[in-house]
Amino acid sequence: MTVITAKKAPFRFDQVGSLLRPAALKSAREKFASGEINRAALTETENEEIRNIVNRQIDLGLKAVTDGEFRRSWWHLDFLAGLNGVETYSQNKSYKFKGAKTRDTNVRFIDKVSYNPDHPFFAAFSFLKSIVPEGILAKQTIPSPTLYFRDHRDDEAVNFYHSRADFLNDLAAAYRETIQHFYDLGCRYLQLDDTTWAFLINQIIRAKDAGEKAKYEQLSEDAVTVINEALKGRPEDLTITTHICRGNFRSTFLFSGGYGPVAEYLSRLHVDGYFLEYDNERSGDFSPLREIFAGKSGKKIVLGLVTSKFPELESEALLKKRIKEATEYVPLDNLCLSTQCGFASTEEGNQLTEAQQWAKLKLVVDTAKNVWAEAD
């Protein structure tokens, strides 16, 4: 039997993290919002549904499992608001997805940012860790610190600082302590989810002049700085990956564009693996993989070839063909397979059924086992 360790992650077949919320969980959330049940009753339902999906993931053969992000409403805002110095508010406008409108929740700074030892995600991870059997990794997902660069949040933050550098230092420190706390709780596999790189790709491509382009290139430099500072001194047996997303809400998206404009920056991140969307032409071709991988034998590229947005099942033959195409730029031994994103970045979820979700994940597992002999 193969021994599963964090340093083997990301795995030949892996997953991004979020899963469709079952009807029982959606009902409990509605009842809690209306005052029909209390927090303890909601938590009991969350616990039961998380146990169910952990077992489903294990039965499928996944080596790392998540809680489906079942305790979250948003993939990012719930975490971002949990650090000290940040609060949620209603911005009276929705995010501009292509063909759908989100709720108007956002976060903003009300003070200097710092680590919160009572962040609710710690209790959530502790529960997940307590129900995952030995030999399976409990995977924790959190938004990248670069999400604080979006919606002018960083402009607001610097009002509390003498300089932007001081803000970046505090932000990195808050994440560094947060990551260490997850480690102390037993986390050995943590993923930074990140839509900011897709935003930067979009802005760099569409820049009107050299000055505007330079602005977003500087933001890219800041992103490398804050992520690497956040990961400084991390334990050697803690695997860190990043997932780069172009937006995921009710099967819609925010951004388009290949990885080329940010490939050099991505190559400098001190992560062990990259979950990269490649489910359609919006992600561009595989050529930027050469620069992102940069010949670093210890890094893995997880190809998100199976879409989580739509129910139609890809053919295994097509997936194998695309994996082979990617080997022109990255050795097969450094490639893995996953869905392009999670299935429910927000509690609304994408437009497919739970059965279709599990069929997608099974396709990832089965294809990887047929491509990589050691994958089982």
Score class of each variant (00 low, 15 high):
Leu77Pro: 03
Leu77Lys: 13
Leu77Asp: 05
Asp78Leu: 07
Asp78Ile: 07
Phe79Asn: 01
Phe79Gly: 00
Ala81Tyr: 00
Gly82Arg: 06
Leu83Pro: 01
Leu83Cys: 02
Asn84His: 14
Asn84Gln: 13
Gly85Tyr: 06
Gly85Arg: 01
Val86Phe: 00
Val86Trp: 02
Val86Asn: 02
Val86Ala: 00
Glu87Thr: 15
Glu87Gln: 11
Glu87Asn: 07
Glu87Tyr: 01
Thr88Phe: 06
Tyr89Trp: 13
Tyr89Glu: 07
Tyr89Met: 05
Ser90Thr: 02
Ser90Asn: 15
Gln91Pro: 00
Asn92Ala: 09
Ser94Arg: 06
Ser94Thr: 13
Ser94Phe: 12
Tyr95Met: 12
Tyr95His: 07
Tyr95Asp: 07
Tyr95Thr: 14
Phe97Gly: 03
Phe97Met: 04
Lys98Glu: 12
Lys101Pro: 00
Thr102Gln: 07
Arg103Lys: 11
Arg103Asp: 13
Arg103Gln: 06
Arg103Pro: 00
Arg103Phe: 07
Asp104Phe: 10
Thr105Ile: 12
Phe109Gln: 04
Phe109Ile: 08
Phe109Tyr: 13
Ile110Tyr: 08
Ile110Thr: 15
Ile110Leu: 08
Asp111Met: 04
Asp111Ala: 14
Lys112Met: 02
Lys112Glu: 14
Val113Gly: 04
Ser114Cys: 05
Ser114Leu: 03
Tyr115Thr: 08
Asn116Met: 05
Asn116Ala: 05
Asn116Leu: 08
Asn116Tyr: 06
Asp118Arg: 11
Asp118Gln: 14
His119Val: 03
His119Glu: 05
